[in-house]
């Protein structure tokens, strides 16, 4: 009986100490890991969209809670003023969600550019939404209040041939971000003042 207790105590002690060590390591690396994930997943897209900005949009970022979810915004400074934000939203693609980053100029409410981050679309068809700029270029300089619809649906945007569903998904994601942006605009402007 005594030995049983000893075995329990030893294993429990080991697990407890291990848990403590891991919690410490985790909390001390968490900020860096988050930054690394941003840098390698969303980073390249954000950098191209914010070309010419004088700060690092990955460092100057803030979060605003939007109902139940928290949304991250990346800030770009142009001509010394923090006047551009980028946010990521998702649209339904042909084979799962498509992540799209939309960069918006907050002074004119125009889109600086959009870029696809993650997707699982068909290679060679839907994947061209990411690898080629044909689709994303059409969003440049549009107002954020635009309906963002494909020509087939009565809008002004040309779909990628052979990938209508993907193109629709990208449009859907942009519509989502425009909704989020307009809904949170006053909060965004407030946060921008502090940067």
């Amino acid at each position: 009986m005594n030995e049983m207790v000893k075995l329990f105590v030893v294993v429990a002690l080991f697990s407890g100490i291990a848990g403590g060590v891991l919690a410490t390591v985790r909390s001390s690396t968490q900020a860096r890991i988050e930054y690394q994930q941003l840098k390698f997943v969303q980073g390249p897209t954000i950098k191209t969209l914010m070309q010419g900005c004088s700060n690092d949009p990955l460092v100057d970022r803030f979060k605003i809670s939007d109902g139940k979810v928290e949304r991250s915004f990346f800030v770009g400074k142009f001509n010394g003023k923090a006047n551009a934000v980028a946010l990521e939203t998702y649209g339904k693609g042909f084979a799962g969600d498509i992540g799209v980053i939309v960069a918006i100029n907050v002074e004119t409410d125009n889109i600086l550019g959009i870029g696809v981050t993650i997707h699982s679309e068909t290679p060679g068809l839907g994947s061209r939404a990411k690898s080629e700029t044909f689709l994303s270029d059409q969003f440049k300089d549009l107002s954020i209040k635009d309906p963002f619809q494909l020509k087939n649906d009565g809008g002004a945007i040309d779909a990628i041939s052979g990938a209508s569903v993907t193109s629709q998904g990208v449009c859907g994601a942009v519509v989502n971000s425009s909704e989020v942006y307009l809904r949170l605009k006053s909060n965004i402007l407030e946060k921008l003042k502090t940067i």
Partner: peptide, 8 residues
Amino acid sequence: LLMQAFLY
């Protein structure tokens, strides 16, 4: 964790 932080 370290690899995620430094060699992503």
